[in-house]
């Protein structure tokens, strides 16, 4: 394949990775932004979403779309509820102390991972995509004979991958509207900016925290449900998304939601492109290098405000 079509193919792969990463990172970023909790178990909520998606589809049978739609609704709700309970049972009692919540979420990571292993076993589980048409893509060129359109061999994607990109965009817009346009969003932002004063104005801060922790986990689970028809569900699959989400949140600026979106697109796209042209390992190396650069030159992240 020539360079142009090859780059387009790689960019499409990158866009799919970026779409899932945006959701996962937003979950991590919202939790940190509102609660100041670094949730080390975030990747396990993603993994749990994927495994539950497999479980739900395997229960339902029938056309793959039926199971998939059920998983798309059930997995984030279940994972969100589990996370909200973990907040009530564990984090609340640590009074959201930054150090102790890190240790506690490391514990939570292993509890979720091992429970999943014991319940569902170590096998990787495939989920059938709800639809999966192969779409050949055209390429345009100005050659000797003028403008020409042709269909390069191998330049194609699937309808499902395009759906993942569209779905992530829709969720992102919905999330944006929730935060900026609704009463719940206003309450979340007030709590984020000054929880003590928020409480003095009747905001039940504890319940807001549970909801936010649940929302963050549900976003990770949603990303996982979208990914699972492309990549099999497995009890160890939470490590990569955790690492990448951390990289994104550091580059974007802790707690900055626009920064998180931009950084997720940047990291996701470059991960996809570099993986296609070179290797996935190089992609991770470059992302990690980028984090190091950001930490050295702009520790508050690209979009974060500097700490005075």
């Amino acid at each position: 394949m020539e360079f142009g079509p090859h780059l387009m193919l790689a960019s499409l792969e990158g866009a799919v990775i970026a779409s899932v990463l945006v959701l996962t990172s937003m979950g991590l970023s919202i939790v940190f932004g509102v609660m100041r909790v670094v949730n080390v178990a975030h990747g396990e909520f993603y993994m749990l979403g994927a495994v539950l998606a497999w479980y739900v589809t395997s229960l339902l049978g029938g056309h793959p779309a039926v199971g998939f739609v059920a998983a798309l609704v059930a997995a984030p709700l279940l994972v969100g509820a589990i996370a909200a309970s973990a907040d009530r049972v564990i984090l609340k009692h640590l009074k959201y102390d930054p150090d102790r919540t890190i240790v506690a979420t490391i514990g939570l990571l292993y509890i979720i991972q091992q429970t999943t292993l014991m319940t569902f076993g170590p096998d990787a589980r495939p989920v059938a995509p709800p639809f999966n048409h192969r779409l050949a893509l055209p390429w345009f060129e100005f050659g000797d004979s003028g403008f020409a359109m042709y269909w390069p061999w191998g330049l194609s994607t699937t309808s499902y991958k395009l759906f993942v990109i569209a779905a992530a965009a829709v969720v992102l817009i919905a999330l944006w509207l929730l935060i900026t346009r609704t009463k719940i969003g206003l309450i979340m932002r007030a709590t984020q900016q000054d929880s003590e004063t928020a409480q003095a104005f009747g905001i039940p801060v504890g319940r807001v925290y549970s909801m936010v922790f649940g929302l963050g986990a549900a976003l990770a689970a949603l990303g996982a449900v979208l990914v699972v028809p492309i990549q099999q569900a497995h009890y160890l699959m939470g490590a990569d998304p955790l690492l990448l989400s951390f990289i994104v949140v550091i580059i974007g600026g802790l707690g900055s939601l626009p920064g998180t979106v931009v950084a997720a697109l940047l990291i996701g796209m470059s991960d996809g492109i570099i993986s296609v042209f070179f290797s996935p390992t190089l992609a991770k190396i470059i992302a990690t290098f980028l984090v190091a650069m950001v930490l050295v030159w702009r520790p508050q992240g690209l979009f974060g405000r500097s700490v005075p």
Binding site: L186, R189, Q193, D194, T197, A198
Partner: peptide, 8 residues
């Protein structure tokens, strides 16, 4: 110290 929600 007022304690407004500064970014709202």
């Amino acid at each position: 110290g007022r304690r407004l929600f500064p970014e709202l």
